[in-house]
């Protein structure tokens, strides 16, 4: 393949230097730290993040304009947070001119499509100041998470303090210290179907993208991709927001990222093709060919 990691100008392993952020961040606290810095530096006026929702572990998109709101949104919720749904409102009743947004690779695709083809996004395209993408193999409907945690892992959802997918397992950590790991073959059936046609693992279209894969525990792999990404990243480094290590000096490094990206894309590319001959003389729609 060769371009499964997308264009980037810089790739490092990093973590935030802010202890408070790290306390509840998923990995190296890259997303929260970078937004907090950009907010302070006036690079963004606010950011759309997955804030706390009505039910445990169910995210709800919010426009965060303070550090507190950013902090409240730390950590990965493995179910859908339609962050792009706020992209226009952020520029309206919230009054933002420079919008930050975090999202999965598909949400980054939505943002870039929205900038080039703003069919219903008047005056939004030039207000996207910082789009942070997070790596993503797949996502889940909320009910899937309920069933995985409560049935398969046998834990009460309210008592879970962290969930994680890594090292080939789905991990559930509870407040009381229990750690349950589920093999990924259990989780597969629960995946969101729309993820099976997804051809991006590391958020190729983000300004900066990040994920845990490739870096040691507690650290994140970071790709700096665009001009505005470079700008904010270099300023944040200069301000001492992050500790970094060259990516070729950490384990398991880019090789694993490349391998997983490749696996995801090849598998899903096959799905896209199979879908086209799904029925008898009839197929399912392929959005990469036409609407």
């Amino acid at each position: 393949m060769g371009n499964e990691l997308g264009k980037y100008t810089n790739c490092v392993s990093a973590r935030s230097t802010d202890k408070e952020i790290l306390k509840k961040a998923q990995d190296g606290g890259i997303v929260t730290q970078l937004f907090a810095f950009a907010l302070d530096a006036g690079i963004i006026d606010g950011a759309i993040v997955a804030g706390p929702g009505d039910e445990p572990w169910r995210p709800r998109p919010i426009v965060a304009t303070t550090r507190e709101e950013l902090l409240a949104a730390r950590g990965t919720r493995y179910n859908i947070s339609p962050n792009v749904s706020l992209i226009k409102e952020a520029t309206r009743s919230y009054g933002l001119d420079k919008v930050g947004i975090v999202g999965t690779p598909c949400q980054m695709q939505a943002i870039r499509k929205g900038q080039l083809y703003p069919v219903g996004l008047r005056d939004v395209p030039d207000k996207i100041a910082l789009a942070i993408g997070i790596f993503c193999m797949e996502n889940f409907p909320y009910q899937s998470i309920v069933q995985l945690v409560e049935d398969h892992a046998g834990q009460k959802l309210e008592s879970v303090k962290k969930m994680e997918i890594g090292k080939g397992k789905f991990w559930v950590y509870t407040e009381r210290g229990a750690v349950v790991q589920l093999p990924l073959k259990v989780t597969h059936k629960y995946e969101q179907p729309g993820c099976h046609v997804c051809l991006d693992y590391v958020a190729n279209l983000a300004d900066v993208s990040t994920g845990s894969v490739g870096s040691p525990d507690g650290w994140s792999t970071v790709f700096v991709r665009s001009k505005s990404g470079e700008d904010v990243w270099s300023k944040a480094i200069a301000a001492g927001c992050f500790e970094t290590k060259p990516i070729d000096q950490v384990k398991p490094g880019l090789e694993l990222v490349t391998k997983l990206a490749n696996e995801k894309i090849s598998k899903n590319q096959k799905t896209v093709e199979e879908r086209m001959k799904f029925g008898v003389g009839k197929g399912l729609r392929n959005p990469y060919i036409k609407p």
Binding site: P61, I80, S81, P82, N83, V84, S85, L86, I87, K88, E89, G103, T104, C106, Q107, Q109, A110, K113, G114, G120, L121, V124, N139, Q192, P193, G194, C195, H196, V197, C198, R275, L284, R285, P287
Partner: peptide, 11 residues
């Protein structure tokens, strides 16, 4: 089977 919940439609 294509929706992934980005939210663009609502926006």
């Amino acid at each position: 089977g294509l929706c992934m919940g980005c939210g663009s439609c609502a926006a």
